[in-house]
């Protein structure tokens, strides 16, 4: 099986750096972006399986970014990540096609598993960067 390609999007660069370090160690191939617009630009050029997306970002927020990602790359799976989850944003996120909605702080093992299931779904719907 080829490596699972993950894109992490968060306006806190410390978080992105740490994420890349930890998940690379777990065998994922990880890219980072500091915001929604940057993520969309990246997705144009690079095949990604799973996007881990912060909900609360200045400028283009997580839900807007999610909408655009699902519009342009419907088989890419998006996991929303949030420090202060609200029911409203959860409902909105799920209805815009997010795969999962995860509250911060998260455990590494837990998120690893969720990324793997998201990747599994991506393979089922006929996407997949390795294909």
């Amino acid at each position: 099986m080829s490596e699972i390609k993950v894109l992490v999007v968060d306006d806190e660069s410390d978080f992105v750096e740490l994420f890349i370090k930890r998940f690379t160690r777990r065998g994922f191939s990880v890219l980072g972006a500091g915001g929604g617009a940057e993520a969309l630009t990246l997705l144009k050029g690079v095949a990604v399986d799973v996007v881990v997306l912060d909900v609360k970002m200045p400028g283009m927020d997580g839900l807007e970014t999610l909408k655009e990602i699902k519009k342009r790359h419907p088989t890419v799976q998006v996991i929303l990540l949030t420090g202060h989850g609200s029911v409203k944003s959860g409902i909105e996120g799920m209805s815009y096609g997010a795969y999962d909605y995860v509250l911060k702080p998260f455990s590494l093992d837990d998120l690893v598993e969720r990324i793997q299931s998201a990747y599994h779904r991506r393979a089922l719907v006929g996407g997949g960067s390795g294909a």
């Binding site: 909408k67 699902k70 519009k71 088989t75 779904r121």
Partner: peptide, 10 residues
């Protein structure tokens, strides 16, 4: 068939 997996934000 196919891309069965989109949200409906559009």
């Amino acid at each position: 068939h196919g891309a069965a997996d989109q949200g409906t934000g559009h």
